[in-house]
Design a protein around this nucleic acid. Structure first.
Lengths: 120, 120
DNA sequence: GTAGGCCCTGACACCGGCGTCAAGGCAAGC
DNA sequence: GCTTGCCTTGACGCCGGTGTCAGGGCCTAC
C-alpha cells in the first residue's frame, strides 16, 4: 500500500510517516517510480509507535522496541534494551507524578483559602 | 538596585527579568542613563512570578496575580481573575495526573510481564 | 493533451521560557 | 585615555513531533 493509504489506516498523516522513516523507525520498500510501498507489518508497527509516543516516549526511545519487534518477538517490550527504556520512563513518570501532586495540593490549598475568605 | 543585583538576589538572570518586563509582568523605573532601577517590591514580585512558573503557569496566566498584588492585596491569588486561572490550572493538572497515572500503570504492567517471563 | 490526484524532497513554522551572542553606551579606577 | 564591567536593544537557537507550503514527477481518466 502507498503512504496515503497507510496514513489513513493508521489514523495519521503521510508527513508523520516520513518523519518516522527519517528517524529510522520504519523502512518501506520503494516502487520503481520511487513511491514508498508498505505492507500490513508496517501498519502494526506504526500502531505500536503511536502508542509509545502517546505514552510519552521519544522517537529515539522507541527504536529498541521496533528492533525487538523486527527480531521476531511478539511484543516490542520483551527485549532487554526496551525494558531498560521502560524502567527509565517509569522513573520519569513517577517523578512527574510527584511534582504534579505537589502542585495540585498547592493549588487546592490556595483555592480553599479563597473559599474561607468568602465565608468568614 | 540594578538588574544584575536583582537577578542575583532572585536567583535568576538579567535576561529573564527583561523577558518578564517584555511580557508586562514588571515595570521598573529607569535611571537617567536608561538603566532599569528596581526596589524590594519588585524582588518579592519576581519571587512570586518564579513560584507560579514553577507550578506550570504561563506568563500570560501570571498577569492577574501580578495585578492583584499591585492592587494592594497580600497575596496574588485572592482576586477573582487569579482564582479563575487557579481553577483552570487545577483542572489541567488533574487531567495530566489522570493521563500520567494511566501511562504509569501501563508501564508497570509491561515490566511485570517481563518479570513473569524471566521466572516462568 | 490536459486535468486532477497521488507521490516525491526540502524547508520553514509552531510553542515558551530562556541562553547566548552582537554591537554599542555608561561609569569608575588606573 | 584606556581597561573593565555593568548596562542597553535586537535577534537567533533550542526541543520535538507535526502542519504546511513550494516546486516538481507519475499515473489515470477524459
Amino acid at each position: 500500500m502507498l503512504i496515503g493509504e497507510l496514513a489513513e489506516r493508521a489514523g495519521t498523516s503521510p508527513r508523520t510517516l516520513r518523519y518516522y522513516e527519517e528517524h529510522g523507525l520504519i523502512h518501506p520498500r520503494r516502487d520503481a517510480n520511487g513511491y514508498r510501498q508498505y505492507d500490513d507489518g508496517e501498519l502494526r508497527l506504526v500502531h505500536e509507535i503511536r502508542s509509545l509516543l502517546a505514552d510519552g516516549f521519544g522517537v529515539d526511545d522507541i527504536k529498541p522496541f521496533v528492533a525487538c519487534l523486527r527480531a521476531g518477538n511478539s511484543a516490542g517490550h520483551v527485549c532487554p534494551d526496551s525494558a531498560a527504556v521502560l524502567r527509565r520512563r517509569l522513573a520519569e513518570v513517577d517523578g512527574y507524578l510527584d511534582q504534579l501532586t505537589v502542585v495540585r495540593d498547592r493549588l487546592r490549598t490556595q483555592l480553599e483559602e479563597i473559599r474561607c475568605q468568602m465565608n468568614p
